[in-house]
Design a protein around this nucleic acid. Structure first.
Length: 350
DNA sequence: TAATCGTGGTT
DNA sequence: TAACCAAGATT
């Protein structure tokens, strides 16, 4: 039986992608391991998110909060504001919970085992394996979208995801080597990201082209199969953008759970087929000519924007006025940011 | 188990 | 343009 993992590691030694939080294979061979905090941070940010999108956020977080102690002591609102734009905001809430748990329960030292990591907030099967393997070089098997795709092709597995996940995981586990499991984990993912891509895989230059069953069968480009998803519906909503004469904006912190949970946003209606108007205070609300459009994972959203001026004595039913200096539009999630971009000109300073 | 949860880039 | 896709976790 050929040593597939060794062949992939040889490829990785020459072709590893460069990432700020990653220790290059040559340095790892010299005994260097990365900062577990930086690795954990990167893996959480990389959940369903591209490396390109993560880079700047990772740099920013490490600069503002260099250690897990710093992050654990941070204000919730500051962390959510720093995460704004990256999406999947439950990750940011769990990031903070996890940092506080590591400080409180582990004296600020990240646990090294899969089982212990898995107990922490925001750390699931993938991230627990990734941190254990990459930060501590433990023999754990990462199974992300890349690994699923590579295994489906290597073994020419046509059963559709997500049902085939267990089998793909088993195939991945039996390939994980005792030596350099951390580099191996990163190697499979690099392979999937750069060679064994979803469409038009570069089989001609793949280090696993010879043992690859799908390459042999000519089915690589159509794997892995996935059960079809239903198309995304459209929901509607009404948002209210109000500004006080002193320049303050009316905003609210959204509930912890649910869509955009814990993030700053404009008060407004629920997002439904036919939303009910819910002005946050009595006023002459003016409808903006253009609506804000945004697409989430599972629905399209169209927001009608109402604007009004508020008096200094206005007491809103919901939200609170944030002074000009305290309100930073970059702290808004993208959907709310689009509303601001459309509305702020009509409410500009007098 | 299946639905929920963002965003930006690619095809 | 619409669908697809990205180093998934949670409930």
């Amino acid at each position: 039986m050929r040593d597939l993992s060794s062949e992939l590691l040889a490829w990785y030694d020459a072709h590893a992608r460069e990432m700020p939080w990653r220790v290059a294979p040559a340095d790892r061979k010299a005994g260097v391991l990365p900062d577990p905090y930086a690795v954990w941070m990167s893996e959480v940010m990389l959940q369903q998110t591209t490396v390109a999108a993560v880079r700047d956020y990772h740099r920013k977080f490490l600069q503002i909060w260099p250690t897990v102690h710093d992050l654990a002591a941070a204000d919730d609102a500051d962390v959510m504001a720093a995460w704004a734009g990256l999406g999947y905001y439950a990750r940011a809430r769990n990031l903070l919970k996890c940092a506080r748990a590591v400080v409180a329960d582990y004296d600020g030292i990240f646990p090294e085992t899969y089982a212990e990591l898995l107990k922490l907030p925001g750390i699931g099967p993938y991230t627990a394996a990734a941190v254990a393997a990459i930060a501590f070089d433990r023999r754990e098997t990462v199974v992300d979208g890349n690994v699923e795709r590579v295994m489906a092709r290597l073994h020419d597995i046509h059963a559709p995801l997500p049902g085939s996940k267990a089998e793909l995981t088993a195939r991945a586990e039996e390939l994980t080597p005792q030596d350099r499991p951390g580099d191996y984990a990163q190697a499979v993912m690099d392979l999937g990201a750069t060679i064994c891509t979803p469409r038009s895989p570069a089989c001609g230059i793949c280090p696993w082209r010879e043992p690859c069953a799908a390459r042999d069968a000519g089915t690589a480009g159509e794997l892995p199969k996935k059960t079809p998803k239903k198309k995304t519906p459209t929901r509607f909503g009404i948002v209210y953008v109000a500004r006080r004469k002193d320049g303050a904006w009316l905003l609210e912190t959204r509930p912890e759970n649910g869509l955009l949970g814990g993030m700053l946003g404009w008060p407004g209606s629920a997002w439904t087929d036919d939303p009910e108007p819910q002005p946050p205070f009595e006023a002459e609300w003016t409808e903006l000519s253009e609506e804000a459009r945004h697409t989430f994972t599972h629905f399209h959203l169209r927001l009608k924007i109402m604007t009004a001026r508020a008096g200094l004595d206005t007491r809103p039913l919901r939200g609170e006025f944030l002074s000009q200096g305290k309100f930073n539009p970059t702290a808004l999630p993208t959907a709310m940011r689009k509303v601001f971009d459309l509305a702020h000109l009509t409410l500009r300073d007098d």
